[in-house]
Each structure stands twice: as C-alpha cells, then as structure tokens.
Amino acid sequence: MTFPIDTNPNFADYAKGEALVSTSWVDEHKGSKGLIIIECDEDILLYSTGHVPGAIKLDWHTELNDAVIRDYLSSEDMAKLLSDKGVSREDTLVIYGDKSNWWATYAFWVLKLFGHEDVRIMDGGRAKWISEGRELTKDLPQFEKTSYPVVERQDSKIRAFREDVIEHLGKPLIDVRSPQEYSGERTHMPDYPDEGALRGGHIPTAASVPWAKAVNEDQTFKSLADLNQIYRVDAGIKDADDVIAYCRIGERSSHTWFVLTYLLGIPKVRNYDGSWTEWGSLVRVPIVKGTEPGAIPEVF
C-alpha cells in the first residue's frame, strides 16, 4: 500500500479496517501524488454541485457497464476508462459517494473484479464530508492520461451468476432489498421492464437484511459489535459459510458484500449482480412470496 492506513480507532476492530479511511484522512492526504479520490453517486449530478478538491467523477450508470450487453466493462474498456481518468495500477483509490456510500461500494466491487489492489472507502461518504464543513469545489481536477494495463476481469471469486445461485441453493443467501420487495408486495415496474422483474418475492431460504441496516445515521458504518449482531447473530452467517448477496441489479448488495468481506472478514462472499431483475424473470426458478424465507422445492 502506497499510503499509510488510517489508524482511526473506529476502524481498528474491523477485519480489514485498512479498506476504510476517514474524512480527516482524506482531507490530510488529498492532492498527494498516487492518491486518486473518486466520487461515485446515485445522483449523478451531485459531483457537479461541488466535490472533494481533486476528486474525479465515476458515473455508475454510463461508465461501468457495457453499452450493449448486460455486463461490466471488458478488460480493454476498463483499462481505457481508468487511463482516461488518470489512474495508474499502483495508485491508492479512495471512493466516496452519496446515500451511505451505496454506489461507492458498487464502484469498489467493480474495481475489485479487475483486481485493483489498493481501493478504500471514505467512511460516511459525501454527507459526512459536507456535515463537517470541509471544503467543496466545482473545479475539475487537472491530470494527465495514464496507461492503465489491460487486466483480465476475474468474476469467479466475488461475482455470482444465476447458475451459481441455483447450485448454491441451501447455503446462505442474503436479500438486501426492502421488506416490501422481499415479500413480493411491491410489484415490477410496468413501464420499465428493463429494470423490473416479471414476478415478485425472493429466492427461497434467503434472509432479509436490508442493506442500510449496516450504517449509522451519519452514514458511517456501524461498529463491529452491531454488525456482528445483525449478520452473525440475527442472520446466522458463519465464517465458514459461502454467502451470496443480491438486490435488484447488484448495487445495494455490493454494499453488503463490502460489509461482510471487509468489516466482518467473511472469506467467501459473492455478489449476484443479476439479482432480482434476472431471477424474478427467469422461467421455472423457485420463488417464495411473503415474509418467511421459505424452503427449496424438491423439484423445479
């Protein structure tokens, strides 16, 4: 790691607390060579209203996905994107965003598909930076293009496809959507089938743990003790478990993936980015409606 880890005592308990930095750490190190600060928001206009000085913008909607196929960028396209943004392979990347770092953790997860080693999240995100009265600027950073190498995307460790989920049935699944989406009470979106699903409900046996349970009101992550209660005690996740998290399109579940992997240190966690928009439209896969996790049918 190029930059020192943040020794903030709030991070000391987490399994891999080095994946977090505080707003004060960012304030101290911003502008340093080799540190790239990235803003990734749910509301893509926010960056233009003012951002951390020197931060670049990453647009989750237009920049991380293939334009035609429902997939992430190819290795070549990611290399081009990061080169155009002035990122080098050995840089320390610190990502922050709105909505409790929801999209920041999504960008983190996508960057990890490409094995970028030193990626960190600014705890509390944009809201904490602003609430502390820290500097914002509308000035766009000046940087030179780099030549980020073409790195093969590695999906198998942290990404699950539908076949993986079918094979996984019987092992822990976490549904991080709202209770209404989990129960199937909230229906699909008729005008927008591309982001909707034809059926409502959840994957059999999935535990319902809405993603935002993992954050405090000030948008920082909850303490290890609180997270242990939510995931290890209430949801019954054990360290030896193979866990898959899902939501609607895989963004909210990246947040839970980050919490389980980096804060709790569960070794095998994958994010099913096809999520409900895929599962809820697949032919003949089992679905459970209602508030109970339900059982896997013997035949389907």
């Binding site: 893509i44 909607h61 237009t62 979106m189 005008d191 927008y192 591309d194 982001e195």
Partner: peptide, 13 residues
C-alpha cells in the same frame, strides 16, 4: 434516457 437511470425517468413520469 441514456444518461440517467430508468428509475429516474420513471420518477419523472
């Protein structure tokens, strides 16, 4: 529609 997510467009509708 290319620049913002379908959920946003749905919100405007």
């Amino acid at each position: 529609t290319k620049l913002v997510s379908p959920l946003r467009i749905r919100g405007m509708n």
